[in-house]
Nucleic acid binder design. Structure first.
Lengths: 205, 205
DNA sequence: TAGTTGACTGGTCGATCGGTCAATCTTAGT
DNA sequence: ACTAAGATTGACCGATCGACCAGTCAACTA
């Protein structure tokens, strides 16, 4: 049942608009994006965008919803596929890291979202992923391969910080510490060192 | 030599504009802030702002420069005041955390800055603070209270992530994990757990 | 075939954008 | 008192903003 509506192919047009808008929104943010630019990029008239999505705000919400849902689904999927044990746990974490590495756009989108004061969206996908991650950590504590004197909720948040903020600001930080910002090995190097810290800490054993 | 220029009090007016603009810029970002709003908030005319600062971009740059310089100076100062040893190191880190906790505006300003594609600013203050932090970590390695199999540059970045991203997104994350977002104890709880992870890691000893 | 629906367009609205300019006010230096 | 310089104003510019409108056209229904 790919596209069987009457009249022209509205679904493809809708998607064309969504794709073009997403690109610009992610690059420039909500306020710095104009309907005209989107229309031009999508090869459509402004009016048509309003016809399909109502307002600029609704289009923005639609894009966030679509992209977030896709991202959190992927993360949930790979998290659900992991079985118990410390090794699976480590693989799981690396996978989570790699998903974000391969999707710089969603990083940027979330960054815009975090600065957005008027958040009207639901948080179902986010909460589900968080719940799954949280359960994973509790499992680790029960199986004994994770310390049980650390609040798993803050353990989860700490991990989010370590992963997400890296992709948000690595370009800036690499400049600060004197590493070529476009170094292709930086991600791996950071991952390696970050995992050492996350698992064993910075103090010698 | 406080304000000894001829003609009216331009310095105070300049600061009034800067203060008003800073407030709005930090709250809404560059694109969503208009010169009219700034003028209204500062109780001056738009023309006067252009007279003092030239363009909207220059005003934005001036605000970032001023606020960043102040922030990094504070951090550098408290970092320089610390003497060697693991205990001073820990205090140092906590102080760094607290400075950001007491200045949510600079967190937001840096967030906008990170999303800004056209960064024309110098990075002198940032690089200096980074260099000092880096030296501190190297000192820790030499004195033996920090692992020397971790690249200090990435150790520093990891720490930045743990601190900065918390203040950027704690409101969102706390909702996800089911903690009251406006909890006044959350900062302390996060700090405690985060330090455990940063120093000893999540694996049991 | 007549009628209905929805995709789609061009034109236009009032508001607001950042920015300029000439004129005026205020004050310091002489 | 006079003047030069800087502070400050209000009117105004062209451009662009998001949104709306009437109308066209193609496809589906009865």
């Amino acid at each position: 049942m790919a596209q069987t509506q009457k009249h022209g192919p509205p679904a493809s047009t809708r998607n064309a608009i969504l794709d073009a808008a997403e690109k610009i929104f992610i690059e420039r943010g909500f306020s710095d994006t104009s309907m005209s630019k989107i229309a031009k990029a999508a090869r459509v008239t402004k009016s048509l965008i309003h016809h399909h999505f109502g307002s600029k705000e609704q289009l923005w919400a639609e894009i966030k919803k679509r992209r977030f849902h896709e991202y959190f689904s992927v993360q949930k999927e790979q998290l659900a596929a992991a079985d118990a044990g410390i090794e699976s746990f480590k693989t799981c974490i690396i996978n989570l890291f790699n998903v974000l590495r391969d999707d710089p756009e969603v990083v940027r989108l979330i960054s815009w979202h975090l600065l957005d004061r008027a958040q009207t969206e639901r948080h179902e996908d986010e909460k589900e992923l968080t719940a799954m991650g949280h359960a994973k950590l509790l499992e680790g504590q029960e199986l004994g391969y994770l310390r049980n004197d650390i609040d798993t909720r803050y353990m989860l948040i700490s991990f989010f910080c370590l992963v997400f903020h890296w992709f948000m600001s690595k370009h800036e930080y690499l400049k600060w510490v004197g590493i070529e910002p476009d170094s292709i090995t930086a991600d791996d190097e950071y991952l390696e060192n970050m995992l050492k810290i996350f698992f064993q800490g910075v103090l010698p054993r």
